[in-house]
Write a protein that binds this DNA or RNA. Structure first.
Length: 430
RNA sequence: GGGGAGUUACCGAAGCGGUCAAACGGGGCAGACUGUAAAUCUGCUGGCUCUGCCUUCGCAGGUUCGAAUCCUGCACUCCCCA
């Protein structure tokens, strides 16, 4: 199967500038392509996965990927797909973000390959030195305003009347597409880059780049977009109540990341497997069948979580996330070390108590629940225990008078308390 | 300025002299069921040194053996008439 037919099968192709020819064009020889990443935060998130994986798929197929971080375009703000004018980030903040993104990309792309190494560039490097007058004369001259006004990203913001929510648009954002268009021209000059890939909201910017290249140099460039990653209910993938799902372990722990995918709706699982994993068509189709026959087993979600966690956080973090999952969903906790518990329960509140309280026979289960913060009052703690909702190391504790001693420790000095199904807290006895 | 209604626990809302820590609903917390879903069902839901004690029914006083319930004053909210 060719790269392109695989992408098609996965549903990764939304539009191309050359539907009939692109498959053969890619098969013909090594091509260089690029995709851009917005440095609006210092970490990539689930939304960036599509782009990273796209570049990765191309690299694995022997092509040469360029990841462009928008140090310059980020200063302007891409209006595509946005209903409101964006706040500008400071230069310092942008610089920090650009560096953060670069580090994460090494997980997905091989920058040292001898045949087709990936490349990471920052468009500030070639855009920062333009003077305003030069830019207007050399670039701006090639942009008919009527064409610019016809782009969806502009139209949707200028719509009057029926589109009452439209927020207008500043000249700054209106100029955005010129910068991105020039990126493409620059990359084609500098690196022979002929293809730009992006989310479907990038179509207008991509074609703007292709037009500019034709006008300035008479060269033919190509574009390709992937669909936006949305759930069956129409909302964006990668958002939780507590915010975006990040690829940075500091922001979204590997456990939370793993859990996010485990909880993907049945209706979205097939799509996610196709769009976000590198599993083969055979494997994915078997998972589709399994999902219909035995949805309760959730093999698709497990596989999805496994593949993505491994890719983003590595094998070791995956193992920890899986171990944590086992524990969080009831497995009795025993024979672990402080270090392991600390890692698994990284997201759980903990409290330190004096070790002597374990020896003197005064610390009851009720006290422990209150100390840990799992219960607000002793009355509440008592109720929890009486109703069978109190656990230490995932073993139910009966009787409100139960005294805690060192034999309840799960490791050298840590005890794992749980109230109800999934509220955990650690007590450290030091 | 005149007349009326109200202020109850996390929220809404009963209670109108003792059996009221206060009905009922929502929320919350546990349990069962279950696919780490949704729905459903059950129990609990002021605090504590817990067969009892303490603090709560706008605030402050008073009547009474006894008040969330009656009286007086104060504060705030709402409605009607000017």
């Amino acid at each position: 199967m060719t790269l392109f037919s695989d992408l098609r099968w996965r549903g990764l192709i939304h539009q191309t500038t050359n539907d009939e020819g692109i498959d053969a064009w890619l098969a013909e020889k090594q091509r260089t392509l690029y995709a851009g990443f917005d440095p609006t935060a210092s970490s990539l998130h689930v939304g960036s996965l599509m782009g990273l994986l796209m570049l990765r798929r191309f690299q694995q197929a022997g092509h040469r990927p360029i990841a462009v971080v928008g140090g310059a375009t980020g200063m302007i703000g891409d209006p595509s797909g946005k209903s409101d004018e964006r706040n500008l980030l400071s230069k310092e903040q942008l610089q920090e973000n650009v560096e953060g993104l670069g580090k994460q990309m090494a997980r997905f792309l091989d920058f040292d390959d001898s045949k087709n190494p990936a490349l990471l560039v920052n468009n500030f490097d070639w855009t920062g030195n333009w003077t305003y007058l030069d830019f207007l004369r050399d670039i701006g001259k090639n942009f008919p305003v009527n064409v610019m006004l016809a782009k969806d990203s502009v139209k949707s913001r200028l719509g009057r009347g029926e589109d009452a929510g439209s927020a207008g648009m500043s000249y700054t954002e209106f100029s955005y597409m010129l910068l991105q268009a020039y990126d493409f021209v620059h990359l084609s000059n500098e690196y022979g880059c002929e293809l730009q890939a992006g989310g479907s909201d990038q179509w207008g910017n991509i074609t703007a780049g292709i037009d500019l290249a034709r006008r300035m140099r008479g060269t033919q460039l190509y574009g390709l977009t992937w669909p936006l990653l949305t759930k069956s209910d129409g909302t964006k993938m990668g958002k939780t109540e507590s915010g975006a799902v990040w690829l940075d372990a500091e922001r979204t722990s590997p456990y939370q990341f793993y859990q996010y995918w485990i909880n993907v709706d049945d209706a979205d699982a097939g799509n996610c497997l196709r769009l976000l994993t590198e599993l083969s068509q055979d494997v994915i189709e078997l998972l589709d069948i399994a999902r219909v026959n035995d949805p309760g087993k959730r093999e698709s979600q497990r596989r999805l979580a496994e593949e993505l966690t491994r890719l983003v956080h590595g094998e070791v973090a995956l193992a920890t996330a899986q171990k944590a999952t086992e524990i969080f969903f009831g497995a009795e906790i025993a024979d672990l070390s402080d270090a392991q518990l600390t890692e698994i329960f990284a997201d759980v509140p903990s409290k330190s108590l004096s070790r002597s309280r374990l020896g003197d026979g005064t610390l009851t289960i009720v006290d422990a629940l209150v100390e840990s913060g799992l219960s607000k009052t002793k009355g509440e703690a008592r109720r929890t225990v009486e109703q069978g909702g109190a656990y230490i190391n995932n073993r139910r504790i009966e009787g409100i008078d139960a005294l805690l001693s060192t034999e309840y420790l799960a490791s050298e000095s840590v005890m794992v308390l749980r109230s109800g199904k999934k509220k955990y807290a650690l007590l450290r006895f030091e």
